[in-house]
Design a protein around this nucleic acid. Structure first.
Length: 425
RNA sequence: GGAGGAAUGGGUGAGUGGCUGAAACCACCGGUUUGCUAAACCGACGUACGGGUAAACUCGUACCGCGGGUUCGAAUCCCGCUUCCUCCGCCA
């Protein structure tokens, strides 16, 4: 969530940013409500603190009176303190309510987009930051979409997934399974070479972690929830990995903290079913290698660029046509200040598929996570957090299969040979 | 799953009702001494919110695993929960 201090001190910037997210004048009123509630909170706290201070002082005096054997005086003071206590209890209750209201409002305000983020409402308003300037792969007229290729070569089975679990849970098998594992290994190795520490996190997280990265309370319905144990299946490795630094106070020399993790990702994705969700395009369980960076605020945008270059390198090694989009305010995720999306060209479907999303969250996540560092003056400051997919598997597989299909079979890109153990499917 | 024990600041660890936001030691940081390093000595050293301030600083409040309770007053007493350790059972 946004910091109260930022909302107080930089109200104009925040309002401007929220307009980029197409907030109406009505919605923008929330900002003023927050400021008003915050004032009430502060004056309320002063009142409570003063009352408690008085009680503390009197408690000490009572102790001294008792020691001196002045029992009656002590007793009269006790009755006075009892009155104060009642007052402060009532005030504290009021404060709790104010704080709860304030939190609720703060949770409902998305991150303020970076000044370089274009305004816009829909995906059509995104800016193409880097377009594909070479020709797309030419496929014969009888080219198959990946779901048909999967059947033809026995690579994955969606119906079998329905039998075992339900729609959206693909079963990979044979060379399809092997390709999947090869890609994971390849992505992890590349991340390792780029200096990311490899993590194997839990695949279920508790409520605190889900709250830390912002899945709760806003996107509760998107996660699978094990109610018996109150644990959530992770929708992305971002959740457990970023929470590694929750409640930490780092030193400046610790930056950047670079971590990578492969995990399966579980998403309920209620609704949103339609023509574009066939095959592996949108599933409830998919594999992804994620990169996460905790960075000094002065360097986070430079780091965002280096993360883009990393993902770009993966695209090139996989020999896939890709483009990079700078998302507009309306299409950006709730917690992000700036997001780039990578899309690969899916030659048989003849459309772009989103395979990676790289974002700088600035202090939006770290404010909830309480991930801070000591600056040169010894002051405690919030760190910046960033993450990106490097990359999401299912859709990469879809594009690989479609783009590389030939009469002889599906050609595997050179970079994967040593992982797959085969060059053709 | 059953039976015991434990949880204090970055670490070790003292502290069983007021003089304890918390001894001592270690680590870290600043300084003195030193040809350099080490040692020795001196000093500072938690977090959050709030007040006085723009800041240095200073004051108040809260925090000794978490939540409640008793009391004028709780790290300390009581209740619930969580986690960790030991033993037993089950098990990849």
């Amino acid at each position: 969530m946004l910091q109260l201090k930022t909302i107080r001190d930089e109200k104009r910037r925040i309002l401007k940013g929220l307009r980029k997210r197409n907030w109406s004048d009505d919605q923008l009123k929330i900002v003023n409500q927050v400021i008003k509630l915050d004032e009430a909170r502060r004056s309320g706290q002063k009142a409570v603190d003063d009352l408690l201070a008085e009680q503390n002082k009197m408690a000490k005096q009572i102790g001294q009176l008792m020691a001196q054997g002045k029992k009656e005086e002590a007793e009269t003071m006790k009755t006075i303190v009892a009155g104060y206590k009642e007052q402060s209890k009532a005030l504290e209750e009021q404060q709790r309510q104010i704080q709860a209201d304030l939190d609720e409002l703060l949770y409902s305000i998305p991150n303020c987009p970076h000044s370089s983020v274009p305004a816009g409402k829909t995906p059509e308003d995104n800016t193409v930051a880097k377009d594909w300037d070479k020709p797309f792969p030419e496929l014969p007229a009888d080219a198959l979409a990946h779901w048909d290729l999967g059947k033809k070569y026995n690579l994955f089975d969606l119906e079998l997934g329905v039998k075992l679990t339900g729609a959206g849970f693909p079963v990979y098998r044979g060379k399809g399974a092997r390709l999947q594992r090869a890609l994971i290994q390849f992505f992890l190795d590349e991340a390792g070479k780029a200096g990311f520490e490899e993590i194997i996190p839990p695949h279920l997280v508790n409520e605190d972690s889900a709250r830390g990265t912002g899945q709760l309370p806003d996107k509760e319905g998107q996660m699978y929830h094990c109610t018996e144990d109150n644990l959530y299946l992770i929708p992305t490795a971002e959740v457990p990995v970023t929470n590694i630094v929750r409640d930490d106070i780092l030193a400046e020399k610790d930056f950047p903290i670079k971590m990578t993790a492969y995990t399966p990702c579980f998403r309920r994705e209620a609704g949103a079913w339609g023509a574009h969700v066939r095959g592996l395009n949108r599933v409830h369980q998919f594999d992804k290698v994620e990169i996460v960076v905790i960075e000094h605020p002065d360097k986070s945008y430079k780091t965002l660029q280096s993360m883009l270059r990393h993902v770009e390198k993966l695209m090139k090694k996989l020999e896939l046509p890709y483009r990079i989009l700078l998302l507009c305010g309306g299409d950006m995720g709730f917690a992000s200040a700036k997001t780039y999306d990578f899309e690969v060209w899916s030659a048989a479907q003849k459309r772009w598929l989103e395979v990676s999303s790289v974002s700088n969250f600035e202090t939006y996540q770290t404010n909830r996570l309480k991930t801070r560092y000591k600056d040169a003056n010894g002051q405690t400051q919030l760190a910046h957090s960033l993450n990106g997919s490097a990359m999401a598997l299912a859709r990469i597989v879809a594009a690989l299969l479609e783009n590389n299909q030939t009469a002889e079979g599906i050609a595997i890109p050179k970079a994967l040979w040593k992982y797959t153990g085969f060059k053709m499917i």
